[in-house]
Design a protein around this nucleic acid. Structure first.
Lengths: 392, 392
DNA sequence: GGACTTATGTTGTGTCTTACAACCTAATCT
DNA sequence: AGATTAGGTTGTAAGACACAACATAAGTCC
């Protein structure tokens, strides 16, 4: 089965008929239940505006399809308790996140909770074939334990991904070029696979369950050893561009006199703002899991923080001018810079931005920290199920 | 009546019912007919995938609503000729475009053709009140002549517009600040008014009827005496951002050592690439309606063209990294620069962009030249009618 | 314990929308 | 003139949701 992302069927007609209505309503219901990890029938009635009897019938269909269950609630509040529609935890998506030093794997259940997880540390960055093998092994193990129904897999890759067919065009830190990871994984697991950029996955998770909840226009900037990943969210979807490469904000121009970047240009945001230069200032390697403590506050570190904060602020100002987001979420070590230089950054962003844009802008640190990439990858994989719960 | 843009009704429910199906199908039909300026019933059947009999009923409703007529076609080809569904030319939108030296007004008919037009030259840039007055007078005159049914007005403003309520937050060249133009015009004309940035209007027109037809991801950059306006189109809609200020591409950073910009920063794209500096190189004022001829090709002009082309190329590379468009459309004097320095620009864009992004990028000159802003403004005004042809 | 509140289940009727099949109409080609 | 090709029209059917009526249930509040 081919990898796929939101692919409209070829020659899809514009016309809508009754079955589309039903599909749409089932999709709304299952999406609500998935996002909230359980919701009463009364809540569903209110949220959709549909009639009680209709909700009853639709929920019945979802139960029959093995996607949700109805549970008696632990009673609270006045009135007859409404049965809670619970997403079934044995309906899962595989989330895969290959990084330089490890491959993270998880099962994300309907209801968006992680129900199984594994992190495999590696002496060197993994090949695509190795990722496929590790993923297949993990799934085999998990299937033996419980009996989850794996409806798809989502892969978050630190690099350029052609989301359309899951081709990893370029992942510099993994040293991958034109790897058809989506197709290979789909073949090995025999489920649909969605591949996307790791920042896109992080954005999706933050936007649904983290610092970006309820915000319709947001930008996510994540700083890791692999550089700076960016993603742009607009009214619930991720800006992908013509080929799926939009939002590569690590490579916007930050300083024309800056250092040469591996992308071939100079002064990219990620050559000027990065962990390596912070480490250099700190005088040695940092413990990435305890970054704040290990960084310390020597004069050299403080100076470097200030320098990076200034460049970062200009970068934020630039993307703000282009996208007019309501919120900019900073993850990884960028969150740390925000913590330590928040006032400076905010002041400079205001100075470098057209006033009305800056007025309504919020800068905030990512909320989900550890899990957002995996949850986002799961979200990718669930998308087609949520769009059409009873299948096609 | 308040100005409005795509405003979802408050508390809108997720649920869909039969009436939504019908609204959707009517909307598809009228939109197809409007875009193509007439289409046979057979074409509509094929495009929507709906049944012949359904199309018949829906078209009947549109005829009854006074939106379209059915005409016998000039026969061509084998087989029974299919009646052509024609948009009615007396269903019109008012298009308004205030600029520094003139106010342009037009009636755009359903079918997207301009059916009446007026350009009022002014000794100085107009006030909002004057724009409202001129628009009201023009409409009154046109209503007397024929008897058009004015379903709305669209205003394209060279400045920052809060599309939500039609507030012109800032239009530097008109010297407007926080002018509630949308509300004032709506009150004067008693029709819904949509206000938007002029570049957004231009993008909409180019995207539907010009150089951007069929392209799902595109960027429009327009250069005029008022500076550089930018707009970003994604799958048929314009990126507006949280407040409607997205796509202000004239103010992305082009050269940190550049001149001071009126926006408070320095080295913005429009301080480095502009008509004034071309005029200075040419040694005197240019005839804007015959720009190419009047610019000439003195050594100073050639050098300045090369300089601006270099900066422009870097700007295009930057927005390409951010948005990953398939096409960048250059309008106004930017189109002229592309004509005269196309090879240089293309070479530099490729050099300054991540390779996979540049590979699929096309640079092209705007096609509609004169009319795109007015047609785009009309399109803004038609949007709510097209979304719900039989009203609410 | 009784009144009240909130909420569900079920059933039948009604409305709306599209699909489909059968039949009718129209223009062009050979 | 008849064949061909295409579209229009009409009546019936099926799917989807709304709504009203009635019965039921489980809790809170006093």
């Amino acid at each position: 089965m081919a990898s796929r992302v939101n692919r409209p069927r070829a020659g899809e007609a514009l016309g809508t008929r009754n079955e589309a209505t039903r599909r749409h309503n089932l999709s709304s219901l299952l999406t609500l239940v998935h996002r909230a990890d359980g919701l009463s029938r009364a809540d569903l009635t209110r949220a959709t505006g549909l009639n009680r009897s209709t909700i009853g019938a639709l929920v019945g269909d979802l139960v029959d399809a093995g996607l949700v269950t109805e549970e008696h609630p632990e009673t609270t509040g006045v009135g007859r308790p409404s049965p809670v529609v619970q997403p079934r935890r044995d309906v899962v998506a595989l989330a895969v996140y290959p990084d330089v030093d490890a491959v993270s794997l998880a099962l994300v259940a309907l209801g968006h909770r992680i129900v199984a997880r594994e992190r495999i540390e590696l002496p060197q960055s993994p090949s695509p074939a190795m990722v496929v093998e590790l993923a297949a092994d993990a799934v085999a193990g998990w299937v033996e334990e419980g009996s989850p129904r794996v409806v798809g897999a989502g892969v978050a890759v630190p690099g350029l991904v052609r989301a359309e067919d899951g081709l990893v065009v370029r992942a510099p830190h993994l040293e991958w070029n034109d790897e058809p990871l989506g197709e290979e994984l789909a073949e090995a697991l025999d489920v649909p696979v969605d591949v996307d950029n790791d920042a896109n996955a992080g954005l999706i998770a933050e936007s649904l369950y983290g610092a970006g909840q309820g915000v319709s226009h947001l930008i996510y900037l994540n700083g890791s050893t692999s550089g700076i990943g960016g993603a742009v969210g607009v009214t619930g979807s991720v800006l992908r561009g013509a080929d799926g490469f939009a939002g590569e904000l690590g490579h916007i121009l930050a300083d024309p006199d800056g250092l040469a970047c591996h992308c071939g240009r100079q002064g990219c945001l990620e050559t000027e703002v990065n962990l390596q230069r912070l480490e250099a200032a700190a005088g040695g390697p940092l413990d990435h899991s305890r970054l704040e403590e290990s960084l310390g506050s020597s004069a050299a570190v403080e100076d470097e923080l200030t320098r990076q904060a200034r460049v970062l602020a200009r970068g934020i100002a630039n993307v703000t001018s282009a996208f007019n987001p309501r919120t900019v979420i900073l993850g990884g070590f960028l969150g740390l810079i925000l913590d330590r230089r928040g006032d400076l950054i905010r002041e400079l962003v205001v100075r470098h931005t057209f006033a009305p844009l800056a007025d309504s802008l919020t800068l905030t640190r990512a909320a989900l920290v550890e899990d957002q990439v995996l949850i986002g990858a799961g979200e990718l994989a669930f998308r087609s199920l949520l769009a059409d719960p009873l299948g096609e």
